[in-house]
Amino acid sequence: VGDQVLEIVPSNEEQIKNLLQLEAQEHLQLDFWKSPTTPGETAHVRVPFVNVQAVKVFLESQGIAYSIMIED
């Protein structure tokens, strides 16, 4: 199991704000291929294997929908 690319769908401005804060966490080494800008629009982010669980827990705790787009 390696890195994953998640497709994330924020449903409101609050969730977009939370994702932008997540993007700013440099220690997570997230690679946003497509940043969140509009509710209902997908964002794509590559998550290093060591941080996959932490990111998924965060998304679930914020009620942000996501799916695994690419499993490496």
Rank of each mutant, 00 (worst) to 15 (best):
V47W: 01
E71D: 14
Q62N: 15
L30A: 04
I8N: 00
P10D: 01
G40T: 04
E13A: 10
Q4I: 13
F58D: 01
G40W: 08
V1T: 15
G63C: 05
L59V: 01
A43F: 15
V55D: 00
E14Q: 10
F32Q: 02
R46P: 01
Q62S: 13
V5D: 05
E14R: 06
Q4K: 07
L59I: 01
I16D: 01
E60K: 05
D31P: 02
I8R: 00
G40I: 02
G40R: 03
S35D: 05
I16A: 03
Q21S: 14
I70Y: 11
Q29P: 03
E23M: 13
Y66G: 00
K34C: 05
A54R: 07
Q25V: 11
H44N: 06
V50Y: 10
P39K: 04
K17A: 12
I68F: 06
L59E: 00
A65N: 09
G63D: 07
F58Y: 13
F32V: 04
A43M: 10
Y66D: 00
Y66P: 01
L20N: 07
L28I: 06
Q62I: 09
V47H: 00
H27V: 06
I70Q: 11
I8T: 02
E71H: 12
L28K: 03
I70N: 13
F49M: 11
G40D: 04
E71T: 11
A43P: 00
I68G: 03
L28F: 10
T38H: 08
K34D: 05
F32A: 02
N12F: 02
I8P: 00
P48T: 04
N51D: 06
T42H: 08
T42S: 13
E7G: 04
L30M: 08
P10G: 03
Q29V: 06
V9S: 09
S11K: 15
F32C: 03
E13M: 12
G40A: 03
W33P: 05
L28G: 04
S67C: 06
G40M: 06
P10T: 04
N18M: 15
V57Y: 12
F32S: 02
A43I: 15
I70L: 13
V5L: 10
A24I: 10
Q15G: 02
H44V: 15
V55A: 02
A24N: 10
E41R: 05
L22D: 02
I68Y: 05
L6W: 13
M69I: 08
I64Q: 01
K34S: 07
L19F: 02
Q53L: 12
E60M: 06
I70E: 13
T42K: 09
V55G: 00
V57Q: 12
K56T: 09
P39G: 04
V50S: 11
S67K: 13
N18Q: 15
E26R: 05
H27C: 05
E60G: 04
T38L: 10
S61K: 11
S35T: 14
A43N: 04
I64F: 04
N51E: 05
Q29I: 05
D72K: 09
K56F: 06
M69F: 09
T37H: 07
